[in-house]
Write a protein that binds this DNA or RNA. Structure first.
Lengths: 340, 340
DNA sequence: TATGATTTGAGGTACGTCAAGCAAAAATAA
DNA sequence: TTATTTTTGCTTGACGTACCTCAAATCATA
């Protein structure tokens, strides 16, 4: 197996190495017809520039910034830990990762941080987006400056972000409904929903998906007005406790995210016939899965998401292809027996 | 961020670059005390050799061989396709992948192929192991020759293989039981199990896990003697059809692997109260999930497994660390709504 | 045809490591 | 002490690409 080098391309195209180099790095001063000739040669020889050698020669360090909410949910704590660990891991690939914490759910904070960082923001940004015009504008400004942007966990599809790294949250909601539909044996009853925040697109979408399926396929189950827990365990617990007292016929529960600990605490005295699906894989949900108090947990793997965001940002700055299969973020279903 | 180079280490240790290089590639001719001094310097400076530059300089091509069964199950067809795709994908990292097909379930064939290949087998091997002394010996011989070995999909833990790339199959069986336990609403009934082959350790383990949970937690469900389908759709279909006719009270079904198409065909006329968990994500299982004829599919991601095996073999030959989180192969649960 | 602008070639240096060979220094043996 | 072996330093040339300069060739325009 012999690698095709830029020199080979030069020979094939009948030009010098310097010209191939100019084409490769689209420097100016090459006639259009020559560019095409070189391109053809590259295709024919199936030339792939050696990225390792290139970054070596370039003395290039990739610099990416992660902007994540400073909130205290278990999930974002995980995310931050994974970013730290990725920072260490990726130095060997000359990738420098910068983590910026921003107050959660605050579009202005994102915009301000981006402004404050200026050029220090590096070659690319991964940010947990909040649905807002300010964020859209910020993203578009970054793109206009040639900085790559991926949204992360929570998307703003209508912005110029190049990619979204995360799960399809509508589908996640549908999965939750689909599971509860199968888990709940009662011929009729109520379903409780503990919502997280309504500002992040992800939670809204999950609820949408959940209700779609419930409405369409579970006429025997009625979804109660959802509880807003503000992602705070204490709030969740007290609200859920009173809901369960007031509605003795709750047979299913979906916790959309944030404050899951409160859900588990509130379930202490609940009926054994109450089937539960939550999000977040923490010590609490693990214990509850093992004890059988909850039935399934729907998760996105933070470790995978961080790695994926880094790889995608690198591919974007290198202008190389993205391996779709590798970057597919799964909606993972954990039951007691496939806990990692 | 400045990279620490071998030259920096040399300066810190008060030796020349050449000596650092000797230590780095454990060449002989360096006094023990000097080796230690260099090592200390490397630790202090937190030196990480630049693998990219190293492979570039070494003019090294990694060569790995995948030995996979030539069988016709959808799963192994997928695996082979993924290996092909990995072969293309990894050339840019100077990794050459060789795929050898061996007759399924035949330990001698594996041994013979290894012998036939000789040194052509390259730097490492990934093989779908069959439980057998011959295979154990073959693996140990390879290791003795300094060739790295990982088992793949199906393990032989008592051999000298350095890693197993695949899922915990006992756990997979437990998951299946755990799901069926929740899916089945009937107060009592029978559970049918369609087994694959008994020679591959993976299927045996899945059955173990399944029966563990069923026995311990589902006294109201009795597991019927399992059907041996020999991984052939036709055989599975006919055997399962007669089983369902003879046992009208079958309320749950677990298909362990191989010939899943036959399962689906046999289910055509079955009771709507029959809950079904299978393996393998194919066009057939997809369609059946969507139609609701089956409830869940348990899968291991072939694409991930192949990439993981390659990365692990590379890390082993480089002597670098393995990123455990990245290499965790998931027991994936697919329902209708999280299909990729 | 002369002029200037654009395009191309040639060549060098660098990136961090590997892999040699040879000479010098140090340690060990006689 | 001298001879021998072992250890170390020094140097050089790759690997494939980037990036720069300078000169030569080609082209367009007046």
């Amino acid at each position: 197996m012999v690698r095709v080098t830029a020199q080979d391309v030069a020979d094939a195209a009948g030009v010098s190495l310097a010209t191939v180099d100019r084409v490769l790095n689209n420097r100016k001063g090459v006639r259009e017809s020559t560019v095409e000739r070189v391109m053809r040669a590259m295709e024919q020889l199936n030339f792939e520039r050696d990225q390792a050698a290139a970054t070596l020669a370039r003395r290039r360090n990739y610099r990416f910034t992660f902007m994540v909410p400073s909130g205290e949910t278990a999930f974002f704590a995980d995310i931050r830990a994974e970013i730290e660990s990725a920072r260490a891991h990726f130095t060997k690939d000359r990738i420098e990762i910068n983590m910026i914490m921003v107050p959660p759910l605050d579009p202005n904070a994102i915009a301000q941080e981006v402004e404050r960082l200026g050029a220090d923001i590096g070659d690319g940004v991964a940010l947990v987006a909040v649905e807002s015009q300010i964020v859209r504008d910020t993203i578009n400004d970054l793109r206009a400056r040639g900085i790559h942007v991926v949204t992360f966990i929570s998307d703003v599809p209508t912005s110029g972000r190049e990619r979204f790294v995360g799960i399809d949250n509508v589908a996640a909601g549908r999965v939750a409904a689909s599971l509860l539909k199968r888990f709940v044996h009662a011929p009729e009853g109520e379903i409780a929903v503990v919502a997280g925040s309504g500002t992040l697109r992800d939670h809204v979408e999950r609820r949408m998906g959940f209700e779609q399926v419930m409405r369409a396929e579970c006429p025997h189950l009625s979804v109660l007005p959802w509880i807003e827990g503000e992602e705070l365990a204490e709030v969740v617990e007290s609200k859920l406790t009173s809901l369960l007292t007031e509605n003795p016929n709750v047979v299913g529960l979906y916790s959309i995210g944030g404050g899951t600990r409160g859900v588990i605490d509130a379930l202490q005295g609940a009926s054994q016939n109450l089937r539960v699906v939550t999000t977040e894989l923490s010590a609490h949900t693990r214990a509850a899965l093992i004890s059988g108090r909850i039935d399934a947990v729907l998760v996105q793997d933070p470790s995978h998401e961080v790695r994926s965001a880094v790889r995608i940002l690198k591919a974007l700055t290198d202008g190389t292809q993205i391996n779709e299969k590798q970057e597919r973020i799964r909606i993972e279903i954990f039951v007691r027996d496939n806990l990692p």
